[in-house]
Design a protein around this nucleic acid. Structure first.
Length: 152
DNA sequence: TAGGCCATCTGGTCCT
DNA sequence: AGGACCAGATGGCCTA
């Protein structure tokens, strides 16, 4: 069993995924440093203080209505449009950051579960998913084989 | 410099 | 009404 797992890991380390499974030395953008924001956007902790301290962005003003424009803007066929205040928008941003943080925590946990040898660098999220799929398939096959071989 | 990866913002939609 | 979830856009960082 152990040996087969080692073989498996060697195998996946050499296999090529459809779209160039190279995982070059990608520096950890954040994560391992345990801080979700590697400074770029916020210099505060992930999110916690923001709600308590209220609004962060200076350029946003008080409780004015938050009128959207945004990437997809407002195509003429938007149905009901929810009007939210700046404070509400910022609260939603905080929640979204928190949600993404927990998502990344789950990815980190998954990273620790999948076997790797050669990856000195941290797996990207997409590679983690792909590797997990391969790994689960492998283990499933292994179980089935053992079930067939082992005497009842 | 291009491309990959990521964090964040944002608006739409669904659900409670 | 408000939160969760999702996807698109944007910009920064890093490596080849």
């Amino acid at each position: 069993m152990q040996g087969r797992l080692v073989d498996f890991v060697n195998e996946i380390n050499q296999m090529e995924f459809p779209q160039k499974y190279t995982l070059g030395p990608k520096q950890q953008v954040d994560s391992d440093s345990s801080s979700p924001n590697n400074q770029t956007h916020l210099d505060v902790s992930p999110w916690s203080l923001e709600l308590e301290n209220g609004v962060r962005n200076e350029h946003l003003v008080g409780a004015s209505r938050y009128c959207s424009r945004g990437a997809h803007g407002l195509s003429s066929k938007s149905k009901r449009r929810r009007i939210i205040t700046v404070v509400q928008r910022q609260a939603a941003n905080v929640r979204e950051r928190k949600r993404m943080f927990s998502l990344n925590e789950a990815f980190d946990e998954l990273r620790r579960k999948v076997p790797t040898f050669a990856y000195e660098k941290r797996l990207s999220r997409i590679d983690t998913l792909r590797l997990a799929i391969v790994y689960i398939s492998f283990m499933t096959d292994l179980l089935e084989q053992n079930g067939q071989n082992s005497p009842m």
